[in-house]
Simulated scan of single mutants.
Amino acid sequence: MSSAASDPEKGRVENITSNGGTGRTRVSNDVEEYGPNSGDPVSYQRYPSHIANPGPMGLFSFASTTFILSLFNVGTRGISHPNVVVGMAIFAGGLTQFIAGMWEFPRGNVFGATAFASYGSFWMSYATIFIPGSGIMAAFSDPQELNNAIGIYLIAWFMITIFFLLAVLRRNVAFTVLLSCLSVALLLLAIAEWGGMEQVQKAGGVFGIVTGLVAFYIGVSELLVAEPRAVARLPQGLLHT
Score class of each variant (00 low, 15 high):
Ser3Lys: 14
Ser3Met: 14
Ser3Pro: 12
Asp7Met: 08
Arg12Leu: 12
Glu14Gln: 15
Asn15Glu: 15
Ile16Gln: 07
Gly20Leu: 13
Arg26Cys: 10
Val27Pro: 06
Ser28His: 09
Ser28Trp: 08
Asp30Tyr: 15
Glu32Cys: 08
Glu33Arg: 00
Tyr34Val: 09
Gly35Leu: 00
Gly35Tyr: 00
Asn37Glu: 03
Val42Ser: 12
Tyr44Cys: 06
Arg46Gln: 06
Tyr47Met: 11
Pro48Ala: 01
Ser49Ile: 01
Ser49Met: 05
His50Arg: 05
His50Phe: 05
Ile51Arg: 01
Ala52Pro: 03
Pro54Thr: 02
Gly55Asp: 02
Met57Gln: 07
Gly58Asp: 04
Leu59Asn: 04
Phe60Cys: 02
Phe62Thr: 00
Thr65Val: 15
Thr65Asp: 11
Thr66Phe: 07
Thr66Asn: 02
Thr66Tyr: 11
Ile68Asn: 12
Leu71Val: 04
Asn73Asp: 13
Val74Lys: 10
Ser80Phe: 03
Asn83His: 11
Val84Leu: 11
Ala89Trp: 05
Phe91Met: 00
Gly93Ile: 01
Gly94Leu: 10
Gly94His: 11
Thr96His: 13
Ala100Ser: 03
Trp103His: 08
Trp103Val: 03
Pro106Gly: 04
Arg107Pro: 00
Gly108Thr: 04
Gly108Ile: 01
Asn109Gln: 10
Val110Ser: 15
Phe111Asn: 02
Gly112Ile: 03
Ala113Arg: 09
Thr114Gln: 10
Phe116Ile: 01
Phe116Trp: 07
Trp123Met: 05
Met124Asp: 06
Ser125Asn: 14
Tyr126Cys: 11
Tyr126Asp: 10
Thr128Ala: 12
Phe130Lys: 01
Ile131Thr: 03
Ser134Met: 05
Met137Gln: 07
Ala139His: 03
Phe140Asp: 05
Phe140Arg: 08
Asp142Gln: 11
Pro143Glu: 09
Gln144Ser: 14
Gln144Trp: 14
Glu145Pro: 09
Glu145Thr: 15
Leu146Arg: 09
Leu146Asp: 08
Asn147Gly: 15
Asn147Asp: 14
Gly151His: 10
Gly151Gln: 07
Ile152Pro: 08
Tyr153Val: 10
Ala156Arg: 09
Ala156His: 07
Ile162Trp: 04
Ile162Asn: 02
Phe163Ser: 14
Phe164Ile: 08
Phe164Glu: 06
Leu166Arg: 07
Ala167Arg: 12
Val168Thr: 02
Leu169Val: 05
Arg171Ser: 03
Arg171Phe: 04
Arg171Lys: 03
Asn172Pro: 05
Ala174Phe: 13
Phe175Glu: 06
Leu178His: 04
Cys181Ser: 04
Leu182Ser: 01
Leu182Phe: 00
Leu189Cys: 14
Ala190Gln: 09
Trp194Ser: 07
Gly195Thr: 10
Gly204Tyr: 01
Gly204Lys: 06
Val210Asp: 12
Thr211Asp: 03
Val214Asn: 07
Phe216His: 02
Leu224Cys: 11
Glu227Cys: 00
Pro228Phe: 08
Pro228Asp: 13
Pro228Gln: 10
Arg229Tyr: 00
Arg229Cys: 02
Ala232Pro: 12
Pro235Trp: 14
Thr241Arg: 15
